[in-house]
């Protein structure tokens, strides 16, 4: 399973992006997007923003679950109180589905299963905690890009822990 995580500001501007792979079930934590598909990630995530805008007013929850799908790419969304969107694109790697029964119940193989939803929720919640710490910084302005390497490593740790 490969992941592409992006934080989108209130003006649909990207604030942060990070690419990683699954670290569960012996994964090495490296994203395996096909070279010709990799540059599409940003487009897919950007196109799902329209759906986010539709969903965000129907449900007051922050975690909006899986909101969009493009072929084998699934987009999950988390919306903060300040209208900043966390978008996670997850695409299961194809050969993993032919594996043993243990692998088929893993979060890598079932992008819409409750276990996957829960794992992504925990990932988002941890990122949200760090996000609130970021915006509490008096030197952080709304819609400014997040460049902190500590924030990046925290996101990486959350990804490793839950996904």
């Amino acid at each position: 399973m490969s992941y592409y995580f992006a934080i989108i500001g209130t003006k649909d501007n990207p604030l942060f992006e990070y690419e990683f792979g699954t670290a569960k079930q012996g994964g090495d934590g490296i994203a395996r997007f096909a070279e010709q598909a990799r540059h599409m990630n940003q487009f897919i995530v950007h196109s799902s923003l329209d759906i986010v805008e539709e969903v965000q007013w129907g449900n007051g929850q922050m975690y909006l679950k899986c909101i969009d799908r493009f072929y084998n790419n699934y987009v999950s969304c988390f919306m903060t109180g300040g209208n900043v969107k966390f978008l996670l694109l997850h695409s299961p790697s194809q050969p993993a589905t032919t594996n043993t029964s243990r692998a088929s119940t893993s979060i890598g193989a079932n992008p819409t299963s409750p276990q996957t939803e829960e794992a992504i929720k925990q990932f988002f919640t941890e990122v949200y905690e760090n996000w609130v710490k970021t915006i509490m910084n008096p030197f952080y302005n709304v819609n400014a890009e997040v460049r902190s390497p500590v924030f990046r490593s925290r996101v990486a740790a959350a990804g490793k822990k839950y996904l």
């Binding site: 109180g81 300040g82 905690e129 609130v132 008096p138 302005n141 709304v142």
Partner: peptide, 13 residues
């Protein structure tokens, strides 16, 4: 104004 923006997410958290 910026205090309000920050408090919104902090209090929701």
């Amino acid at each position: 104004h910026p205090i309000g923006l920050k408090l919104l997410d902090l209090l929701l958290y």
